[in-house]
Design a binder for these strands. Sequence first.
DNA 1: AACATTGTCCCCCTTTTATGGTATTGTAAT
DNA 2: ATTACAATACCATAAAAGGGGGACAATGTT
Lengths: 218, 218
Amino acid sequence: MQINNELNIRITIFDDNEAICNSLYQLLHYTPGFEVVSFFKNCENVADKVEECLPRVILMDINIPPTSGIEAVKEIKRKFKTVDIIMFTVFEEEDKIFEALKAGATGYLLKKTPPLKIIESIQEVVAGGSPMSASIARKVMNFFTQQSVLQNNKNILTRREQDVLKGLIDGQSYKMIAINLSISIETIRTYIKRIYDKMHVNSMTEAVAKALKEKWFE
Amino acid sequence: MQINNELNIRITIFDDNEAICNSLYQLLHYTPGFEVVSFFKNCENVADKVEECLPRVILMDINIPPTSGIEAVKEIKRKFKTVDIIMFTVFEEEDKIFEALKAGATGYLLKKTPPLKIIESIQEVVAGGSPMSASIARKVMNFFTQQSVLQNNKNILTRREQDVLKGLIDGQSYKMIAINLSISIETIRTYIKRIYDKMHVNSMTEAVAKALKEKWFE
DNA sequence: AACATTGTCCCCCTTTTATGGTATTGTAAT
DNA sequence: ATTACAATACCATAAAAGGGGGACAATGTT
C-alpha cells in the first residue's frame, strides 16, 4: 500500500560518509511518515540541490566537502528560510556548535545518537522544537551562564588593573594611561602583565576584544 | 523493601503552588531511583534550605515568592556549584528564559510537560544534559541566529581590510593574520595603515575597540 | 584615455609592547 | 607575627607595531 507522500516529512541528507549516509537512508526511508527525497556526498551548489527536491528537513554533516556544513547552512538558510537543518556530526567542540547555530541550524545531533532518537528529533524540529544531544544542550546552556560569570570576572582584576584595562579599551597607549593615572609607565607595564595573566591573553588587542565581547564594562 | 537511598537522585522542589508541588511529589517520590528530600513553598533563606537537604537536583518555580526563582538560582549556584537546577514554569517569555539560564539554571521545563518527560529530564541533567521543552529549545537556538546581522559602517572598508580587522578583533598579530590570509605581512601592514586612515584611529586597540563598541561585526 | 580603487609587496626607521625578572611599601587577613 | 595581596617602580632584551615612503597589476569609472 502506497502511503500518501503529501503527509511524509521530506528529508535530504548531506554526508560524505557513505556508510552513515546509507544507514540514515535505511533508517528513515523505511520509517512511516518519513521520506528521504535525496542525499548528497558534497555541498557543491547546495542551493540548487535543495531547490530540486525541496525537503522539509535537512540532515547536514558538519564536515561535508568541499567547504563545510556551516557554509552550506548559511547558503541554504539565505534562500530557504523555512527548511529546518539538523547538524549531524562527530564534533563536540564549542566553536563548531556555536558557528552552526549562528549560521541557522535548528538542531545539533552527535553521530552516536541512537536511531530512535534521530527519528524523534526530526519529528521534533517539524513540531517547532530544537533537538540537541544532551551534551550539546549543556554546552549551549553554559554559554549563557558563562556570560554572567564573566561580567563578574572583571572582579578578578584589582581596581588599578581595571583602570588600566579601561584605558586600553579607550585606545590609550601605556604612556597615555600612565599620564592619566599619574603613575609611572613602568607600573602600567606591571599591571598589564598581571592583566594578561588573569585574562589568559597576551596582547592589548586580545584583552580589549575579550573585555568588550564579554561586556566586562559598561 | 527499602531501596538504598545512596543510589537515589535526591530532589528538592521549590514551588508555591500546592497542587503542583503535590503532584510533583507524588510523581517523583514513588518513582524508583528518585527521592524527594524536601519541598518548599517559598525561597526565603534558600541557601540554608538547600544546605539542610543537599539535593542533587532542584526543581524551581520561576515565580516563587518572596523574590523570584531567578534570584534563588543565583543564590544557590553561588554556594552550591554542583547542584543542577531545572526551572519549572508556565512562562515562555524570552526574558525569563535567558535570565534563568544566565543565573545558572541547567534545564527549563514548561509546567505542561508530561510526567514521563519530567522524569526523563531529571535523569538527563544528572547525566550531564540540559533538558528543555521543545519551544524553549527553539528560542534558545534563535538567540544565536538573530545575532549575526552585519552593520553598515564596516562597508567603508574593503573586503580585505575587513578580513584584517576581523583578525585584529580575534586578537591576532600581523603575523598570524598574514598566515591566515596567506599573504605577506607587508601587505597586512598596508591594510592596517589604510584601516587606521579610514577609521581615524592609530593603534590596534583603538580600531578593535571602535569596531566592537559600534558593533561593526556580529 | 585618464583616473581611482583595490590587492599585493617592499624598505627604512622609530616607538611601543611583550616577557622575564626584582623590589619596596602599606594594608588586610590569619 | 607572618602571610598574602595590592600598588608602586625599575631594568634588560626581543618582538611587534607605527609612520613615512614607493611600486605595480587588475578593475572599474568617468
